[in-house]
Design a protein around this nucleic acid. Sequence first.
DNA 1: ACCTGAACACCGTTCAAGT
DNA 2: ACCTGAACACCGTTCAAGT
Lengths: 230, 230
Amino acid sequence: MTETAKRPLSRDLVLETAVSLVDHEGLGALSMRRLGQELGVEAMSLYHHVANKEALLDGMVDAVVGELIEAVGPGGGTDAARDWVAALRARVLVARTVMLKHPWLPAVLESRTSISAPLIAYYEGVLATLHAGGFSNDLAHHTLHALGSKALGFSQELFDPGKGGGAGEQSGAELAAMAEAFPHLTAMMAEVAHDDPDSTLGWCDDQTEFEFGLDVLLDGLERRRTGTSG
Amino acid sequence: MTETAKRPLSRDLVLETAVSLVDHEGLGALSMRRLGQELGVEAMSLYHHVANKEALLDGMVDAVVGELIEAVGPGGGTDAARDWVAALRARVLVARTVMLKHPWLPAVLESRTSISAPLIAYYEGVLATLHAGGFSNDLAHHTLHALGSKALGFSQELFDPGKGGGAGEQSGAELAAMAEAFPHLTAMMAEVAHDDPDSTLGWCDDQTEFEFGLDVLLDGLERRRTGTSG
DNA sequence: ACCTGAACACCGTTCAAGT
DNA sequence: ACCTGAACACCGTTCAAGT
């Protein structure tokens, strides 16, 4: 499954191939030897195009953030001035469609020691939207923190119940013991599973939950902006 | 810096030592060989007490979550029925004081493939608080998702400006170029830095920002619970 | 039952050598 | 200038051997 090896090796080709490898097989599959193999080249050849593995990861982040910036365009237009909630919401949901193709990005971003120029440029667009919507610098600052990874389209929940903790594998006795030990959880799971068979705790609708959390935040921020909260 | 090696090796001692090692030196310092060294024992001896490194990480998570559950106590008391916002807020802020001692935990939790019994028990307490506060199962379910890592006391922001991206190292020319390329960011940083010298973009007050984000969420959730939103 | 040491199949990275 | 192969200092883990 090596590349066709027609394009000459270059930094861009190395980064593209690394992103594609990690998109398909996860971060665990990314080693210098494996990436070299993917490019039909010895691992050591890669060091002529990236300084080391950290620099490789930096480059991969910037490549994806470049995609993201292209997808969302500049912020702060007239529609942001008219309705910043709608403008920011649309921005974030577009970002999300790009980011879902690269689910390894939050983990890599968290391991960076400094913020890159492309990422700064992305946040400039978010800020332009907020300022067009009438945010003070102070509230805009708090807002960037409060949005966290949601600004980039990620929910970054700590555990994904779909990963294996859901119902379905327990015996009747285990379920009964669980109902006694965790009555509130058991009741909630039973009702949510009943209301929406496709969306039990073991398989929540990520998009729905992301938009719910985003909307709660946006509503609360708008109330603070207009001074109608508290 | 090895242990005094008086206590006999046991699963608990292995887990305690691993948590302490990672608290002090970070996840990168945790290897089976290094952990063995810390305990005055060969790396292979550890395999008599934990199945492998993944099981070691599982055990470390449960050890910390145990601390957490002890610190917050059970949820759903009369004060939760009287004021769920205050009750949940207090719970989360207590959780935060525990979690700040183990900042590696989000990264490890994200790498787990299933949710452990102690973590389920913690969420049962959160749910008890929400149910005492009058939440429907459906809204409680959305709320768990919306809270994300905040339920455990972590902000989990994607980048920490304090890590190195802040101002302070740029030349005058670089700052001028930045002001032109990123006018909104430059203006915000200037004002926020001026208002609070201790809390520039390069050194934000994590606790303040955590509480701001938490309060925005709690306000929005209370409005949804009472049907006063939208 | 618990601990050991050598070994295996991996890492990232350095270095001297090739073209 | 670009690529290579051997080597170094690490990983997690297996296995046979010790007590």
